[in-house]
Nucleic acid binder design. Structure first.
Lengths: 218, 218
DNA sequence: ACCTATTTTTAGATTTGTCTAAATTTAAAT
DNA sequence: ATTTAAATTTAGACAAATCTAAAAATAGGT
């Protein structure tokens, strides 16, 4: 597996899709920051290797083998992110770029030992689930904060947008995973929220609320 | 810097050499497990970038910039080796291959944090010195065990051959860095040694003795 | 100083992953 | 059922790093 092949599989996985709803060449090209023609070439190559299903003009979907490979890369990426945060004091907005490199290191023993060192974490610093060796992962019953009703209360468990600017914004406003949030009021005009969190009250825009996941409970 | 460029610089550094005694194309090709013609191409490219001095048919030598870069890669390689042994319980014969990959990860913060986590080690698991950020490293006053006189005593501080088979042999025979060794007798016929070490006596061949470094003392 | 063996370089080809531009297929609209 | 717009593929080219085979330069021996 080349690094490029691994990146394609990872992105195809993240784009979701299935045998019935395959991923379009264009969508992949956009995520890979490359051209659709390059994607076509790679689709053929991955199909040859049995990692994706591909028919001309019909998009691609991962085979079982491709899904397994994608999950193993995602597992590595997320474990390295936890490592960087827990063991090396990186902040959650700094880890993605480095993990993009570390995820391609080829050594099963290495990643298993990292997993062990971290005591088998189930979620990465952004709240995304970490697949186990055999490709299983926890699906958390979560919803966007923006979709919670007034008066609703929930624990912040993840972010939808994990870009550095958003994460830095959250840090600056002391919003972190694990905090309990209650919606006090919704502004009809712009859908901004008035929330209570860790004993203080603040106002956040709809854009922020629609990128924060809270655990569905009660 | 591409991965290939980094590997060339590292190997040129390890081959020693200087402005007056440049490294031959052939020597590099052999270490890189590639062909001399490929080395010529790379020599031109590295010369363009100011990392090596190169004149047709005259071999190459590292510039200051090239030396600096080579040392930073070696620093990363050796720090990762220490990490694998100290934090993930790898044995010293397993670390090289993985460190070959990890040394190319591009993140100054990452390697500095690893250095800190390991409490700034000065030597790697094979006894080789770890360059500091500014490219300085300790030169230990060591000699090959095979060159020590009869009756001589010294602490084992490094290996010359760090291949897995040799390291596994040492493990099997409970020879490790830090052990004190005294030469009891040398066999004239085959130069094998009779040594005392950690309260037991054993015989080792010349080939073994000429790949073990002991600290020069008394 | 010359010849010869070795080393090194050049020239041209190959592979991987990408690109542009043109051609083709699909899907949507009338 | 056509037409048209959008998406996708093909064809041909390029850069990086490598290779083989042939040519050129060097170094050693006489």
């Amino acid at each position: 597996m080349t690094r490029s092949e691994e990146n394609y599989l990872k992105i195809i996985f993240h784009l979701g899709g299935s045998d019935s709803i395959p991923i379009t060449t264009n969508a992949i090209a956009e995520q890979m920051e490359t051209k659709p023609s390059s994607v076509t070439d790679m689709a053929k190559k991955l199909a040859e290797k049995g990692l994706v299903n591909y028919k001309r003009y019909q998009g691609v979907s991962l085979t079982d083998q491709g899904t397994k490979t994608a999950l193993s890369i995602i597992r590595k990426h997320r474990l390295w992110e936890v490592f960087l945060v827990k063991k090396l004091d990186f902040s959650w907005d700094e880890v993605h770029e480095v993990a993009e490199q570390l995820e391609h290191i080829k050594s099963e023993k290495l990643i298993d030992k990292i997993d062990e060192l971290l005591e088998f974490p189930k979620f990465d610093p952004h709240g995304d689930p970490i697949p186990s060796k055999d490709g299983k992962f926890m699906v958390r019953d979560k919803q966007l904060l923006s979709e919670m009703p007034i008066g609703g209360k929930g624990v912040c468990v993840g972010v939808k947008d994990s870009s550095a600017p958003f994460l830095k914004f959250l840090d600056k406003n002391k919003i972190a995973l694990g905090h309990t949030i209650q919606i006090l009021e919704k502004e009809d005009f712009d859908q901004s929220l008035h929330i209570a969190m860790e004993g203080r009250e603040l106002r956040i825009s709809h854009q922020i609320a629609s990128n924060l996941y809270v655990k569905k409970n009660e």
